[in-house]
Computed example of a mutant assay.
Amino acid sequence: MTTTPASDGDRGALAAVAVGSGDSPDLDERTAAVRALETEFGELFTHVRRLFTENANRLSPGLMPGSYKVFTTIARRGESTLSALAETLHSDKGQISRAVRELEELGLIRRTPDPADGRSSLLSATAEGLERLRAVRAPSENSLLAALESWQVDDIRELTRLLHALSSAEAPD
Rank of each mutant, 00 (worst) to 15 (best):
T2P: 01
T3C: 00
P5H: 08
P5F: 07
A6S: 08
S7P: 00
S7M: 01
G9D: 13
D10T: 01
R11S: 03
A13Y: 09
L14H: 09
V19P: 00
G20P: 00
S21V: 03
G22K: 04
D23A: 13
D23V: 12
S24V: 02
S24W: 08
L27P: 08
D28V: 05
D28Y: 03
D28I: 04
E29S: 09
E29C: 05
E29T: 10
E29A: 10
T31H: 11
A33E: 14
V34R: 11
R35D: 04
A36P: 02
L37T: 12
T39R: 10
E40H: 11
E40R: 11
L44R: 13
F45M: 08
H47N: 06
V48S: 06
R49S: 14
T53N: 15
E54V: 13
A56L: 10
R58P: 11
G62E: 09
M64S: 12
P65A: 05
P65R: 06
S67W: 13
Y68Q: 05
K69C: 13
F71D: 02
F71M: 09
F71A: 04
T73Y: 06
A75R: 05
R76N: 08
G78V: 11
E79K: 05
E79H: 10
T81D: 02
T81E: 03
L82Y: 06
S83R: 14
A84F: 07
A84M: 11
L85M: 04
L85S: 02
A86F: 04
A86R: 03
T88K: 15
H90L: 13
K93C: 06
Q95G: 11
Q95D: 12
Q95S: 15
I96F: 04
L103P: 01
L103H: 02
E105P: 06
L106G: 07
L106P: 01
G107Y: 13
G107F: 13
L108V: 08
R110P: 00
T112V: 15
P113G: 10
P113S: 12
D114E: 11
D114F: 04
D114P: 09
S124P: 00
T126Q: 07
G129K: 01
L130P: 01
L133R: 01
R134L: 09
R134V: 04
V136G: 02
P139L: 02
P139I: 03
E141L: 13
S143G: 03
L144W: 09
L145G: 14
A146K: 08
A146T: 15
A147W: 09
L148T: 11
E149R: 06
S150G: 01
W151K: 00
Q152R: 13
Q152N: 11
Q152V: 08
Q152W: 07
D154P: 05
D154W: 07
E158N: 03
R161G: 00
H164W: 04
H164V: 06
S167F: 14
S168E: 06
A169P: 07
E170I: 01
D173A: 11
